[in-house]
Each structure stands twice: as structure tokens, then as C-alpha cells.
């Protein structure tokens, strides 16, 4: 998770920033699902036998969150593409210098 945050802050490339965001997100998901684990339990699909099931509630939350996460990162990619069309670069420093030039 910290790795994802690190990538977001340190990379200059906007596509890598989007990837870093996705990694950050996935780390949170893994943490959530690990809370749902019950030792010696099985997947929450009911069977005839009585046994322990892992907690289905975090699974539901994460399942929807994954799909939403992909949709939002697609939105981020679309923004990156638009930035590229307007500035012809996706490196943060270059865009800054271009902006400064056009402001003068």
C-alpha cells in the first residue's frame, strides 16, 4: 500500500500515477478481505454440512468496489489521454514548464 502511495508521489509519468492509484486500492481490498477470513472456514456458499463460513459481508463490499475501481481508473486514463492530446506529453515537469511559458 505504501508502495502504491510512493509511486503516486514520485513518478512523473501520469500513466504510472494511475497504476499507483490502482495498487493502493488493491492493497486496501486485500486488507478488507483478510478481515473476513475465518480459520478452518470455507467459502460462503452454503452446503448441507454444518461448518464455518468466512464472513460474506466484506466480500460483497469489495466485489462491487473492484468493478467501480476499474471504471474510475478508466476515467483517469481518459483524462490522461486528453492531457496528452492537449500538451503532447504526459510528464508532469514538462507540462508545468509549458504552462509557465503560455502564462507569460
Amino acid at each position: 500500500m505504501v508502495g502504491g502511495l510512493f509511486i503516486i508521489i514520485t513518478s512523473q509519468n501520469y500513466l504510472k500515477k494511475v497504476v499507483g492509484l490502482a495498487i493502493f486500492q488493491t492493497a486496501v481490498f486485500v486488507f478488507f478481505v483478510s478481515l473476513a477470513k475465518v480459520l478452518d472456514g470455507t467459502a460462503p456458499i452454503l452446503t448441507k454440512m454444518e461448518n464455518a463460513y468466512s464472513n460474506p459481508l466484506p466480500h460483497v463490499l469489495i466485489l462491487t468496489a473492484i468493478v467501480v475501481g476499474v471504471a474510475t481508473s478508466a476515467l483517469g486514463l481518459a483524462l490522461v489521454l486528453q492531457i496528452y492530446r492537449n500538451y503532447e506529453t504526459i510528464e508532469e515537469k514538462e507540462i508545468q514548464s509549458l504552462e509557465l511559458k503560455s502564462d507569460k
Binding site: V67, A71, A74, L77, A78, L81, R85
Partner: peptide
């Protein structure tokens, strides 16, 4: 919804530019 949104995403990414 999910199927059509994903197809729409692919089409708009592929036809961009």
C-alpha cells in the same frame, strides 16, 4: 449495465484520436 459500459469504454479508447 456493466457489459455495455465496458464495451463503450473499449470503443471510446480504441477510437480515440
Amino acid at each position: 449495465t456493466v457489459a455495455t459500459v465496458m464495451i463503450a469504454l473499449y470503443h471510446s479508447f480504441a477510437s480515440f484520436g
